[in-house]
Amino acid sequence: MTRTHGVRARRRGAGVPVALLLPAALGLVFLVLPLVGLLARTPWATLPERLAAPGVLTALRLSLLTATLATLLCLLLGVPLAWLLARVEFPGRRLVRALVTVPLVLPPVVGGVALLLVFGRRGLLGGWLDATFGITLPFTTAGVVLAEAFVAMPFLVIAVEGALRGTDGRYEEAAATLGAGRWTTFTHVTLPLVAPGLAAGAVLCWARALGEFGATITFAGNYPGRTQTMPLAVYLALETDVQAAVVLSLVLLTVSVAILAGLRDRWITSP
């Protein structure tokens, strides 16, 4: 096509089949329209004072903190899990892989209840944790992190496992022939090789944690400064003051998009 219609190919958009272009455009509109709706309803005149309202900054800070901690927790536990799923043959691997996706399928509120049944005061581990270490998780910031990590972890595991499967396992063999043990191979060869997939997974994980609502409010409750993240603040604002909810949503969106865009730039330009 490019050979026979060289002139046409130079024109913008030529060569992209309409059958793909049309649904692609529709898809984009579908994703962006709600954002437009949000912007259209934003009370620009009163925006500064609404932003300065007490609680907004607190909730934002708590959201960023907990989402980041949850992502770190997911990295710590999820990357080894992904490695296991991608690299080690063991009986029941298919089942384990299916179990990893449970939090994706489970309604987050149910996830929150499930977390309570495990880590709650009368939960399977909660009572023991409290009696042994004096740790209680519900209604604490740590509880928020736990709830967010529970819901967001599958995104990380699936992305990293995919990246691991996509890399040539023989690089790890090459590392072994050079004297690297399994752990060194993992840290010095495997992880750098899957870095792009890891970054993508961490971003998905972080974004999901940032937007987490159902599991958080069910497991960690809602208390300003301690467990009230932005999505919880938005939900409650919606009960009384739609405009306040719009402002809060906008803040959450702006900050997350800015952070994600910034990170993306760094990753792409890094050598």
């Binding site: 040539d168 023989r170 690089y171 063999e173 090459a174 590392a175 072994a176 022939t177 050079l178 004297g179 690297a180 043990g181 010095h188 060869v189 750098p192 090789l193 870095a195």
Partner: peptide
């Protein structure tokens, strides 16, 4: 493998793509 003292030159070399030539050689 890692304790055998056996060096391998693989068919498609398998140089670690994230390391420079020097770092590849220094790896062992």
């Amino acid at each position: 493998t890692e304790r055998r003292g056996v060096g391998v030159v693989f068919q498609d070399y398998l140089l670690f793509p994230h390391l420079s030539a020097l770092e590849n050689v220094a790896f062992g």
